[in-house]
Amino acid sequence: MNEELSILKGIHPGIILERELRKRNFSKAQFALSIGEYPQTLGAITKGKRNMNTALALKIEQALDMEEGYFMILQVFFEIKMEKLKQHSNNSSDHPKLRRLLFWDTRMEKIDWQKQKRAVIQRVFERGNDQEKQEVIRFYGNTVVENILKYKSIPNNDT
């Protein structure tokens, strides 16, 4: 379980629950009723709009014959991730200063600047201006930027 948890760290437990229900061909509504919960409650959790609570986690784990505490561990890791994102967004030096226009398709507050550095660097070097390119080099360092851009230019022969 430890290896699986390290892979799933930061993912909302509702997403994992939905995947598990789909894998077992269970309807969310019928499963919710079978454990004595409202379908709306389970739906909100699987959409990530509501957090998992201990009582519900225990019911789900028992009904799905899963290890006790699994969903609450996922919930804690998710909450840690959200708190870190909040702290990073409050500290402006933790991310490069770039125009929101470059990231029109996402909320900049949700970007994990370290985990998603490859995508950030590639986007800035494809669509950014010279000032933004310099900002990315300042933020990540010249070596990291060069390695990512060099890696991108290698042709992919997987097809």
Rank of each mutant, 00 (worst) to 15 (best):
I16F: 03
E3T: 14
K28I: 07
S153N: 09
S153G: 05
L42Y: 00
K117D: 04
M72Q: 05
E135F: 03
G10T: 04
I11V: 15
N53K: 01
I7C: 13
D105P: 12
S153F: 06
E3H: 15
T143K: 13
K150R: 09
P13S: 03
L58I: 10
I7H: 14
Q75M: 02
L149D: 08
H12C: 06
A29Q: 07
K49I: 03
S27R: 11
Q75W: 03
K23D: 07
G128C: 01
V124S: 11
I7E: 15
E83N: 12
M72C: 06
L102S: 10
V124W: 13
N142R: 12
D158P: 00
N53W: 00
N157M: 13
F77Q: 05
L101C: 14
I11Q: 09
K47A: 05
P39R: 13
E61P: 10
Q131R: 15
I73A: 07
Q116K: 14
N90Q: 12
Y140S: 07
K47W: 00
D105W: 12
D158V: 08
K28T: 08
E37Y: 11
M52D: 00
F71Q: 03
D112G: 02
K110I: 02
R118M: 07
T143N: 10
L64N: 01
D105G: 15
H12G: 03
K150C: 11
L74A: 03
R22I: 06
K59D: 06
M1K: 06
G43T: 08
E135T: 12
P155G: 02
K133S: 02
A44D: 01
Q122C: 06
F77W: 08
N157E: 14
N51T: 04
L58Q: 10
S34N: 03
Q30D: 13
G36W: 03
I15N: 08
D105E: 15
L149H: 09
S34Q: 05
M66G: 05
E3S: 14
G10C: 09
L56Y: 05
